[in-house]
Design a protein around this nucleic acid. Structure first.
Lengths: 149, 149
DNA sequence: TTTTAAGGAATGTTGTTACATTTAATGTAA
DNA sequence: TTACATTAAATGTAACAACATTCCTTAAAA
């Protein structure tokens, strides 16, 4: 079943505008799948993403600006997401030594452990929905990259 | 520049998990592009989507349930989006004659005119960002459909 | 019938996002 | 040094989303 049937819209202005709708719809589909998993660990999607960026930096700290820069969804408010993560003791916030305006954020051991626990579930989930061959996934990545270029 | 450079994450667990991130990132990119356009017409993204579905139904009405069913982002609250559209007189809400639980929603002439005005801008925008050939867009659609299957 | 269940939409509550503004620290030019 | 602009992050506020609950209507069962 293609996108046209799923959203019951038979006509699109062009193959490209169909692709735009398809991306939005697929994103929403992925998000809905994902959300429940995150929720079962008490995290929201942006919180999970910030944690993952911090793990990528570990053991180096990240400033709030760096986090904003790397977030998939730039629009959300990094400061307050970090508040939530700090409340749960998943990250540590401390003043940056060489620029007192900036704040260093680090993932805590508790945060690292949580992510490790989630890794497995994420991995299971990904394989369970992976219907693409390696070659197809590569082509998809190439096309999405080209679309944004 | 590919997704790896854009989000500064060099390693992915697999080509497929890279594709998932790529879809999320591309969606966010599209959304950011789009948002400003909608805003300049005083609409939010979900409001615009509801209006488009209603135009697709026109001159038939749609019930709230049908709108929820067809929305790209199922999660949001259709009733309140319709409230907003009704306040702006872009839609008409009235009780359904054969089932008094249901509510018929129709796009108004004002709504149709607004969409028509926006069509042109949307179309310009789409061509301005379209870097894909017809064949590539088709492949992309096929792969996204397969991913969700 | 009377009761009970299910459906369609609206509403209340809580948390989050979007955006503007504020606070504080740093850099720079007169 | 003082003044002014810039940067980093936090905060206030209004709108919005997520989710549960409620209200009313229809359907179905006892």
């Amino acid at each position: 079943m293609g996108i046209a049937e799923e959203i019951k819209q038979q006509k699109f202005k062009s193959e490209f505008s169909k692709a735009i709708v398809n991306i939005i719809y697929t994103n929403s589909w992925l998000n809905q799948e994902n959300l429940q998993l995150f929720k079962s660990y008490g995290l929201t999607t942006p919180q999970f993403n910030i944690l993952r960026i911090l793990r990528g930096q570990h053991p180096k700290p990240a400033t709030v600006n760096l986090l904003i820069d790397r977030m998939l969804d730039k629009s959300s408010n990094a400061s307050r997401i970090i508040d939530k993560l700090e409340q749960k003791e998943l990250v540590i916030r401390r003043q940056c030594s060489n620029d007192r305006r900036a704040v260093d954020v680090l993932i805590s051991n508790k945060g690292l452990e949580l992510l490790e626990e989630m890794d497995e579930k994420m991995s299971d989930w990904e394989s369970s929905i992976n219907t693409l061959t390696e070659q197809e996934a590569q082509t998809l990545n190439g096309l999405l990259d080209k679309l944004r270029s």
